[in-house]
Each structure stands twice: as structure tokens, then as C-alpha cells.
């Protein structure tokens, strides 16, 4: 069956289920957000009640980094577009909040307060109740829905508009097809010949820091978060006085593709912003993999990663600011990963 049809049917069923439940009647029916995207926010830093984490439209075009100043300049910012986006964002948020803080599905809980407390501590599907020995229908549908979103994230492509906005040119690995990408991780670790040539022509050689972006296993992760991480990281590098090379985008890349980039451009540190394998909590979580002088034959233990960067995890802007400090540390010890830990003593 095609994915759109599945989604349509799921929505219909969920809407029907909700219509049966009187509004405000509590119960787990609320936990399903019919038209919500499958992204949920999980606020790991606070133990408080659900907060509305809404995302005002970010519409930056032609972000430009002004030399020497550390300021990141923005291009045109379209007002009307932003308003429209915001309205739909607010609506989405309401649904999202419900999706991640579902009312408990347990009927007559022994200790409702404590149950609420436990549910607030994890995005996992706990306290969802059951029907006999099975999950309730809406719990099950939501699970399927999240799973479908995860699949979508893997198979999607990153919006060209975004790449243009961030001024990232695009190259590919040795895979063209997503199916092949899934089955042949080794090919996703190699730049295509054209890619090698293109980056050699376009990129500044031997920069201190080379930033690259890749869809990896989640194009949604890149679409949703890379802009904020990237701009904040740029600012952080500027503030710290670290120069960075010409950034670009690698389609269908794997983490170790940075080794080919290292060979071609000879940077001191590579930062690769790449989509993580989607989970059922978030399909749009981004990772930043870092490595000191990645080259052919670099071992995995010499890489390091800051993971879980998304709106409900580490805030993308904060992650970007923090990455600068990590890079500084890598440069100081001239090592990353396990070697860095060893040198640090």
C-alpha cells in the first residue's frame, strides 16, 4: 500500500475514535493527534508540566557570515509567509503537546499523582493502559503512525530550498538509490568521483574546521534542525576565532564519508551534521559527529558524537554554541574520540 493511503486511513480511524469520546472526557483518545506530524517534543530538562514548545517561523534567506565580525547576517525575511507559518505551527504544537504527554490510559489508577509523575519523566509509552492483554486501539495506531513517520524520514529528501538558503552545494556518495543506500552502508561512506572533484575545486583547502551536512538516515532531522545548529555553530567558531572552510551537503552519506572529505581537503577537524536513525520518539533527531584529521583508515574509536539534537532534546542553537567549545578541545589535544579521552587523562 502506498504511504499516503495508510496515513489517510489512520487519520480517518483516529478522527472517528475521537468523535466518539466526548471532548474533555480525558482518556487516551486525546493522545492521538490526527493531523500532527509525527514529531513529538520531549522536554528532558524540566520536570514541570507540559510546556508548549512552539516554533515561530524561521525564514532566513541567504544567511551570510560577515568576515571578521562574528555576526551572522540575514537576508530577506518575508512577513506574510511567516504569519501563515506561525498559525499552523501553533495549531500543530497543541496537538504535539498532547501527543507527547498523553493523558494516562490506565483506568482508575491506584495513585494518579504518581502515575502522572512517572509519565512526565519519560517519552516512552508507559501508562497507556490495555485492553485485555493487548494495547488499546489508539495506542496501537499511534505506534504505527510513529513508525510510519520514521520510515518517511529515512526515505525522504532534503529540501533544495534549505540548501540554497544555507549556501550549501550538493554532492553525492557512491549511492544513488535509497534502497541501495540502506543495503550498502559501505557505498555511503565513499564520495563519488564527481563529488571528489567538485569539492576539490570549490572548497578552501586545509581549513581549521570543515563543516559538512548530510541527510544520513533522516532527512527530516536535517530539514528541521540543521539550520539552527549550523548558524549557531558558525557564530561560535567566529567568536572563538576558529576559521572554517567551505561547507557543503552530501546526499545519502554515512558517518565515515568524512574520511574522504579529510583526504581531499585536509582540514584539522571535521564536523558532520547528519540525520540519525529515527526512533519512535523522534524521527528528526540530528547528530554532530566530530573527528580530528579524519583520513582513509581512521578508526571508529577516534570519532565522537553529540547526539539527540532536536527540539525536544538538546536545543539546536545551544548545541551549535556548545560544539564550538568541543572543537576547541579537540584542537588543543589534537585528538578526538577515545584518543582524546586518553590524552585528557
Amino acid at each position: 500500500m502506498n504511504p499516503e493511503l495508510i496515513e489517510k486511513i489512520t487519520r480517518l480511524i483516529v478522527e472517528k475514535l475521537q468523535a466518539q469520546n466526548p471532548p474533555g472526557g480525558g482518556g487516551a483518545a486525546n493522545s492521538v493527534a490526527p493531523s500532527a506530524s509525527a514529531v513529538k517534543f520531549w522536554d528532558h530538562t524540566s520536570s514541570s508540566e507540559p510546556k508548549n514548545i512552539s516554533r515561530p517561523a524561521l525564514n532566513v534567506s541567504d544567511a551570510k557570515v560577515e568576515e571578521g565580525q562574528g555576526r551572522i547576517e540575514f537576508g530577506n525575511y518575508s512577513e506574510s509567509n511567516s504569519v501563515r507559518k506561525k498559525e499552523s505551527a501553533v495549531k500543530k504544537e497543541e496537538q504535539r503537546t498532547e501527543a507527547i504527554y498523553p493523558a494516562s490510559g490506565v483506568e482508575n489508577p491506584f495513585d494518579p499523582e504518581e502515575l502522572k509523575n512517572l509519565i512526565s519523566k519519560t517519552p516512552s509509552r508507559i501508562g497507556v493502559g490495555r485492553a485485555g492483554s493487548r494495547p488499546k486501539t489508539d495506542t496501537w495506531l499511534k505506534f504505527r503512525f510513529d513508525h510510519a513517520a520514521a520510515v518517511d524520514a529515512v526515505y525522504g529528501d532534503v529540501n533544495e530550498e534549505l540548501l540554497k538558503r544555507l549556501d550549501l552545494f550538493k554532492v553525492s556518495t557512491k549511492v544513488r538509490d535509497k534502497e541501495v543506500y540502506i543495503r550498502r552502508p559501505d557505498l555511503g561512506r565513499k564520495l563519488s568521483d564527481e563529488a571528489k572533484q567538485m569539492i576539490s575545486e570549490k572548497c578552501r583547502k586545509a581549513p581549521t574546521v570543515q563543516i559538512i551536512v548530510s541527510d544520513g538516515l533522516s532527512s527530516s532531522a536535517v530539514e528541521e534542525n540543521v539550520e539552527d545548529v549550523y548558524l549557531s555553530l558558525q557564530q561560535s567558531l567566529k567568536s572563538l576565532g576558529l576559521d572554517s572552510g567551505t561547507p557543503f551537503y552530501i546526499e545519502k552519506g554515512r558517518v565515515a564519508v568524512m574520511d574522504d572529505v579529510g583526504e581531499a581537503l585536509l582540514p584539522k577537524v571535521v564536523v558532520l551534521l547528519i540525520g540519525e536513525r529515527p526512533g519512535l520518539v523522534s524521527a528528526e533527531s540530528l547528530s554532530a559527529y566530530l573527528c580530528f584529521e579524519p583520513r582513509k583508515g581512521t578508526i571508529e574509536a577516534d570519532r565522537m558524537v553529540i547526539s539527540n539534537i532536536h527540539k525536544g532534546g538538546i536545543p539546536p542553537v545551544e548545541a551549535g554554541a556548545y560544539l564550538g567549545t568541543v572543537i576547541q578541545k579537540i584542537l588543543k589535544y589534537e585528538a578526538s574520540g577515545v584518543s582524546l579521552v586518553q590524552k585528557e587523562g
Binding site: 524561521l58 540575514f74 539552527d228
Partner: peptide
């Protein structure tokens, strides 16, 4: 307090 999600532009 009660900050919405903040993007880079918002922080600026």
C-alpha cells in the same frame, strides 16, 4: 521564562 522554541534568528 515560558520561552517558545528558539531558532538562531530568534536568539539574534
Amino acid at each position: 521564562t515560558e520561552m517558545p522554541y528558539l531558532g538562531f534568528r530568534d536568539i539574534q
